[in-house]
Write a protein that binds this DNA or RNA. Structure first.
Length: 427
RNA sequence: GGGAGGUUAGCCUAAUUGGUAAGGCAGCAGUCUUGAAAACUGCCGCGAGUAAUCGUUUGCGAGUUCAACUCCCGCACCUUCCGCCA
């Protein structure tokens, strides 16, 4: 959420910035009116309250000194204020809710370093790592490879759940589990993250905190239950909200968390896109990286987090490139995002395998997570960052496709072999 | 599912059969000092206001009342006990 005062004082700049995100600025045209109305109602309601409070105090004094008749007279005087106040309070609630509603629908402001453009065509490649393998045979895609090896079963997954679900079997399931453990080990042991295993169901407040709500309600799977749970679309939700509503101490920052969770997405509106294979599923596995840090360090922490995710691809020997997203392609809460894309031989293209975002104070303000510095009384909002480290299903795809042999078998990258009980090859 | 106790500002703690949130710690600014400490003064949740100031805030939501931390109802969370359960 953007800061009300900031928007008020920089309205034109905010409009210009949000335009680069393809955000319709007509919503912002309402800001000034809402702001004025809100302040008018607040001050009017305050002055009525002032009258009531003063009268009430007088009555208290009269009652204590035994002047019952005078107190009764005073009571009658105040009675008329009540309706007026009820009415004003209602207007006040409406005005404040309208402002909150408006602010909660505004996306974050892009960082100055982001390329300006209206879609992914404006994204800029900033590095390319690893050698793309030359095949002396026609490489198959992961669906053909997986099904022939008996480690991937879409047909039965569709039978027992539906489309966009998959079943991994045997060495395929083990490979997925190996990837999870490998990633968690690298991030905890080498990169200093604390492993956490959070709830996979969360409440609406948490979803507001990490900006899935109110705008992206339809992207979630909701539990039909009065408690309003939803299945997490990413571990970013429970992990970033870990310190929501808390007052942190600057000396305890930064905090680094990594979590493995399944992720659940309705994929409403993506009919027909990536229908073949494991690329886009309703349920997928992911190891997530989350940081909470001092505002002045978030740029540097963002670079480090992205590098931490890239380390996994380097260790697995998978070729990739890193893109900085253009203003038009960034997610709602991000000030800046790097996408890491892995090479898929079957598609002869790079596909997203991680998205690493700096959210600035956008989320901490929404979830009321604050911190204090020593020697400074005022509370501040820390910055939050998140990124996939990595999407397990897509890494699984990349391993099958990049490590396939002419006979359809798959070599296991050396770093994964200890996690596969020494297995060096599938098939 | 049932019972008991609890939730006050960054932290800790008060508040007469209902009378308008007292104080301490930490922090900020200033006075004093060569400097620091101590002491003293002001500030020290949020909102409106250039400001004086005013409003608002006792887990959340409603209610009774001129007036609610206090009384009534509902809910959340924490502690604990019983039951059930992997």
């Amino acid at each position: 959420m953007l800061d009300l005062h900031y928007v008020r004082e920089n309205l034109e700049a905010v409009k210009t910035a949000l335009e680069t995100r393809n955000f319709p600025t007509d919503l912002l045209d309402k800001f000034a009116d809402l702001d004025i109305e809100r302040r008018r109602v607040i001050s009017e309601s305050d002055s009525i309250n002032q009258l009531r409070n003063a009268a009430s105090k007088e009555i208290g004094g009269l009652m204590q000194s035994g002047n019952v008749t005078e107190a009764e007279a005073k009571k009658a005087e105040v009675a008329g204020l009540k309706d007026k106040q009820t009415n004003l309070d209602k207007q006040r609630d409406e005005a404040e809710n309208a402002m909150k509603e408006l602010l909660s629908h505004l996306p974050n402001l892009p960082d100055k370093s982001c390329p300006i453009g209206k879609d992914e065509a404006a994204n800029v490649e900033i590095r390319r790592v690893g050698e793309i393998r030359e095949f002396d045979f026609e490489p198959q895609d992961h669906v053909d490879l997986g099904e022939k090896l008996g480690i991937l079963d879409f047909e039965r997954a569709t039978k027992i759940a539906g489309s966009r679900f998959a079943i991994l079997n045997g060495a395929g399931a083990k490979l997925s589990r190996a990837l999870i453990n490998f990633m968690l080990d690298v991030h905890t042991v080498e990169h200093g993250y604390t492993e956490t295993l959070p709830p996979f169901l969360v409440n609406r407040k948490s979803l507001f905190g990490t900006n899935q709500l109110p705008k992206f309600e339809d992207d979630l799977f909701h539990i039909k239950d009065e408690r309003g749970f939803a299945l997490i679309p990413t571990a970013e939700v429970p992990v970033t909200n870990y310190h929501s509503e808390e007052m942190l101490d600057a000396k305890d920052l930064p905090k680094y968390y990594t979590a493995y969770t399944p992720c659940f997405r309705s994929e409403a509106g993506s009919y027909g896109r990536d229908t073949r294979g494991l690329i886009r599923q309703h349920q997928f596995e992911k190891v997530e990286l989350v940081k909470v840090c001092l505002p002045e360090n978030s740029g540097e922490e963002h670079e480090k987090l992205t590098a931490n995710a890239e380390t996994i691809l380097q260790k697995l020997g998978l070729p990739y490139r890193t893109m900085v997203l253009s203003t038009g392609d960034m997610g709602f809460g991000a000030t800046k995002t790097y996408d890491i894309e892995v090479w898929l031989p079957s598609q002869k293209t790079y596909r997203e395998i991680s998205s690493c975002s700096n959210c600035g104070d956008f989320q901490s303000r929404r979830m009321n997570m604050r911190f204090k510095r020593v020697g400074n009384a005022k509370t501040e909002f820390p910055h939050t960052l998140n990124g996939s480290g990595l999407a397990v299903g897509r890494t699984w795809i990349a391993i099958l496709e990049n490590y396939q042999q002419a006979d359809g078998s798959i070599l296991i990258p050396e770093v994964l072999q200890p996690y596969m009980n020494g297995l060096t090859k599938i098939g």
